[in-house]
Amino acid sequence: MMAYMNPGPHYSVNALALSGPSVDLMHQAVPYPSAPRKQRRERTTFTRSQLEELEALFAKTQYPDVYAREEVALKINLPESRVQVWFKNRRAKCRQQRQQQKQQQQPPGGQAKARPAKRKAGTSPRPSTDVCPDPLGISDSYSPPLPGPSGSPTTAVATVSIWSPASESPLPEAQRAGLVASGPSLTSAPYAMTYAPASAFCSSPSAYGSPSSYFSGLDPYLSPMVPQLGGPALSPLSGPSVGPSLAQSPTSLSGQSYGAYSPVDSLEFKDPTGTWKFTYNPMDPLDYKDQSAWKFQIL
């Protein structure tokens, strides 16, 4: 009977010793046993002879290597770790002494450095960015050149030099007046198309007034536009458009034309069986010896 009264063996659950049927240790109110408190290391007290050895090595170098620390530790009968900690504390003490010396050398008012006064946003004049500046400075420094007289040679050079070769001289006033084509001369031969040399188009003023001019072949195509416009036809070669000034309004060009419109200028042929003959000019830059190549039959 006494065997049943004795408590059973101890069981360990999660490293906790349980005594038989008792489960009081598993209750929430019972805390787990805490780790033992780490003991504080005792402070090391250095003797005068030990301090002399350490100070002598510190005077040589503030960062001794492990071999120098072990050698000193053997002399003063201390572990190497204590020597390492002593050098660490000695360097910190040396830095603190240097900072105190710097503070003593500075004057009393030198510690508080005078800061520059901050400028207020409204006091300083700042350039306004509302208006974009002129990058080319046209509004201040540029002045347009004065327009020359209508009959000045410089204007003629600016007008005619675009179309004339570089080897030719500017046309005088008398020749510029001949550039304007007359109405009857352009409409006299509506079906004849003559190819003149390129030099005649640039230099010869008579080429624009003769039936064999460069633009005589364009007349049949330009004249039928007159009834559609409801007024006189516009002429690209009329009046002052080739003269001194090219800047004319469309209203000033509306009254200039080749001449009176005639039914002869239409595109319809009077004789459907007729042929169109292209007159060959020996001055043509295209060297075609066979003139029969310039004739064709309209079917």
Rank of each mutant, 00 (worst) to 15 (best):
G8C: 12
A174P: 06
E173S: 09
Y221P: 01
S49A: 09
S212I: 12
Y208V: 04
P282Y: 09
S199R: 10
G109K: 10
S81D: 01
Q97S: 04
T123P: 08
S185M: 15
C132K: 12
V180A: 06
S161R: 09
P31T: 06
A247C: 11
G274L: 07
S143I: 02
S292C: 12
Q256I: 10
R98P: 08
A200L: 13
N89E: 15
D284F: 13
K102R: 07
L171E: 09
L253H: 07
E55P: 15
F201I: 05
V85Q: 12
P64A: 13
Q50V: 12
D65A: 11
P190A: 09
S257Q: 09
P227G: 10
Q105H: 09
L18G: 00
C202A: 04
F278A: 00
Y261P: 05
S49H: 08
N77G: 04
R41A: 15
Y214Q: 02
S152T: 05
F46M: 14
S167W: 14
Q100K: 07
E52R: 10
P232G: 03
D265G: 15
V83H: 15
P125M: 06
P282E: 02
M283R: 15
I298N: 00
S213D: 01
P190F: 11
L146Q: 05
P263I: 13
T155S: 01
S235T: 09
Q97K: 06
G178V: 12
A233C: 06
F278R: 00
Q106G: 03
Q39A: 10
P127R: 08
K270F: 02
P145K: 08
S169M: 10
L51A: 14
A247I: 12
D130Q: 06
A196Y: 14
S182N: 04
K102H: 01
Q291L: 12
M283P: 09
K118V: 02
S152Q: 05
A73H: 14
K60G: 10
K289A: 01
L57W: 10
Y32N: 02
A181W: 15
V83N: 13
E168H: 11
S12W: 12
E268D: 02
N89W: 15
V157F: 07
F87C: 12
V66D: 13
Y195G: 00
P282I: 15
E53M: 10
Q101N: 08
P31I: 11
S152L: 05
E42Y: 08
F87M: 05
V66I: 04
T273N: 03
R95F: 14
Q97M: 05
S150W: 10
N6P: 08
P282N: 04
A247N: 08
Q111V: 10
H27P: 02
A233G: 03
D265T: 15
S22M: 09
M26C: 06
S241Q: 03
P7K: 06
A293L: 09
I76T: 07
M5C: 00
S34C: 06
F201E: 00
Y288D: 02
M2W: 12
L246E: 02
C132E: 09
A293Y: 08
A117P: 05
E70G: 09
R37C: 04
G109W: 02
Q175C: 12
S254V: 10
L57N: 14
S19D: 02
C94W: 03
L179Q: 04
P184M: 12
K277T: 11
A233M: 08
